[in-house]
């Protein structure tokens, strides 16, 4: 008898408790910026493509769902000719982001990627590329790397000395 009353009371009390159910999709849940959702390719602070097609994301991927091909522009800047992520295989582990030496590949707090056809889950570079630097607004790999590209000659990277003049007679 007593337990019956207690149950009734509990139910009655919950009718006035704070609601925890989020009315998704009308209402969006909060996902932190570091949430591991849809993968994007970002741009460096100068607006250039950040990905240098080093293949580290692809090799780190435990389900092998990233594939790309490197190519170079006429000034030696390397970028992916194509970049493909098969999200129907992706497990959103974030290893690719961890492996990326240029902060190009980032996971975002967006999980709304459902599709009726698996084919539509194959994202190409155009689908992955965003216009900003994502979570890392300042880093530009080419400013630190010791290779020359268009607009940045040898010796112009951070912490680099001017190139040695090999024809100089000075020791």
């Amino acid at each position: 008898m007593l337990s019956l009353v207690r149950s009734l009371w509990e139910v009655f009390r919950h009718a006035f408790a704070r609601r925890v159910t989020v009315q998704y999709p009308e209402q969006k849940a909060y996902l932190s910026p570091r949430y591991r959702g849809r993968i994007v390719l970002t741009r460096d602070p100068d607006g250039g493509e950040r990905c240098v097609a080093c293949n580290l994301c692809a090799v780190a991927c435990p389900v092998d769902c990233i594939s790309l091909q490197a190519t170079e522009d006429e000034h030696g800047r390397r970028y992916p000719e194509f970049f493909r992520i098969n999200f129907s295989r992706c497990i959103f582990c974030g290893y690719c982001e961890e492996a990326c030496p240029t902060y190009a590949i980032q996971l975002t707090p967006d999980t709304e990627m459902g599709e009726y056809k698996r084919e539509n889950l194959v994202y190409e570079k155009a689908d992955l590329m965003i216009d900003g630097p994502g979570k890392y607004p300042d880093y530009n790999f080419w400013r630190v790397a010791g290779v020359a590209i268009g607009g940045k000659d040898k010796g112009q990277a951070e912490n680099e000395l001017v190139p040695i003049d090999t024809h100089s007679l000075m020791p």
Binding site: A58, D64, C65, N86, E119
Partner: peptide
Amino acid sequence: NRYSGRTAMFANISV
């Protein structure tokens, strides 16, 4: 055994 892209390289042709 580090071969990459197995599930993506031909995904544009067939998933």
